[in-house]
Amino acid sequence: MAVLVTGVAGFIGSHVALYLLGRGDDVIGVDNFNNYYDPSLKRARIRRVVDFAEGGEADADTVDLLAGVDATGKARGAFELHEIDLADRAAMERLFATRSIRSVVHLGAQAGVRHSLTDPFPYIDSNVTGFLTILEGARHTGVDHLVYASTSSVYGAVTDMPFNVSTPADYPLSLYGATKRANELMAHAYAHLFAIPVTGLRFFTVYGPWGRPDMALFLFTRKILAGEPIDVFNYGQHKRDFTFIDDIVRGVVAALDTPAEANPRWDGNAPDAATAGVPWRVHNIGNQRPVELMRYIEILEQELGARAERNLLPMQAGDVAETYADVDTLVAATGYRPRIQVEEGVRRFVAWYRRYYAL
């Protein structure tokens, strides 16, 4: 029996696969290697996963993460890769029908808040139709647990900080956020109809080595080293709950190991938006320490040994001024505790960036 990891060539997916393999789980990976950003980076991530599965040593960017893995006496897991688009219904049906899948970590999606304003259709194809193929596969094969990626973007217009999962999240400001909220509602329907344990994790600004080139840290690093100005939106008044990749991975796997259960005290007359009377849960997964964007840039400048020329701009459409995760429910359910603060996380990212691009 294996764990299916979708989006396995992605930033989070590749790290989750490494962690699972390190503790002895077999992993079936799915990715379509689309060109939303440089596919060569995705291929490089997969090479790391394959090398590790075949007995290679953990590299400098994952040695700390994997040092905490408890393999419980098992050998390293096996890995197989399938290049499939999640929206390809027939291909996904075949995959579920021909593989023994115990549980699912669904991380595959069309990412990017701003991109959803200019190219909306891939968000429906991947994030809605693609999620439906996962739910149907889980339904027909009886998986033990489905953990899927949601996002802090579901909070949208909510401004009460910190964001709490018991607060209704029905006011998204982007199509991306709307598709992820749709995932949460679809998951509830399947948990109700077919008793599938499902857990949604609302990610808060994940960063670190092997990250996404469309994210601020990657963009800022590239431009500062090239001597180009960086675009700083909302005139630098953003705050973000930056969460290091190692903390995210530990939280994802801890959630996977803790199948959602029905809340026996759930009351339809006074509903709790974080739980249900069926095996469905949502949790925030963040660092629980918002950092001002200007401070983030200062830390990056210190690590790069270079000053950034700041191009101060107004807020972008679909964006929010601040994010701040209340992670109490994830802590209570799994013992999750973020460990890496932003100074160390940025240092590790810069070290990786210089190695990867030979700078």
Rank of each mutant, 00 (worst) to 15 (best):
A67G: 09
H238N: 03
P314D: 13
E184R: 08
G211V: 14
M92C: 05
H15T: 11
D59W: 07
H188Q: 14
E57G: 03
T98A: 10
N284Y: 12
I230D: 00
G177M: 02
L81I: 07
P314Q: 13
D85L: 05
Y353R: 11
P172V: 04
T151A: 13
A67I: 07
D125R: 08
F11L: 12
V5I: 15
E83C: 15
R307K: 04
S150L: 04
L107N: 09
N164I: 12
D267R: 08
D59F: 11
A91Y: 09
F96N: 06
L4F: 05
P168Q: 09
N311I: 02
Y353D: 15
G29V: 04
H238Y: 07
A138D: 00
D267Y: 08
G56E: 08
A169P: 00
P229N: 09
V3G: 03
G305Q: 08
T141H: 11
I12S: 14
G10I: 13
V147G: 09
Y155T: 01
P259V: 08
D64S: 07
G77A: 05
Y155W: 03
Y336G: 09
G156Y: 00
A109P: 03
H140I: 03
V232H: 03
R337V: 05
G277M: 13
P279E: 11
H283L: 10
A9S: 13
V165M: 08
D70Y: 10
D247T: 11
R347V: 12
E54Y: 05
R348E: 08
Q302G: 00
Y171C: 02
L201S: 07
V69G: 06
L117W: 06
A71C: 00
L219K: 05
N263K: 08
A97E: 03
A67N: 11
P290D: 02
R23C: 07
W266Q: 12
D257S: 07
P162Y: 02
L201H: 04
S40H: 13
G318P: 01
F218K: 15
G236W: 01
M186R: 04
L300N: 06
F33Q: 11
D88V: 12
A91N: 08
N183K: 05
T167V: 05
D85P: 09
A138H: 01
D25K: 09
A178C: 01
D70K: 11
A87G: 10
A191W: 11
R102V: 00
Y123F: 06
Q110V: 08
L20Y: 10
D61H: 15
V331D: 10
N269I: 06
Q288G: 01
D247Y: 12
S116T: 02
L132A: 00
Y336L: 15
L20K: 06
D328L: 09
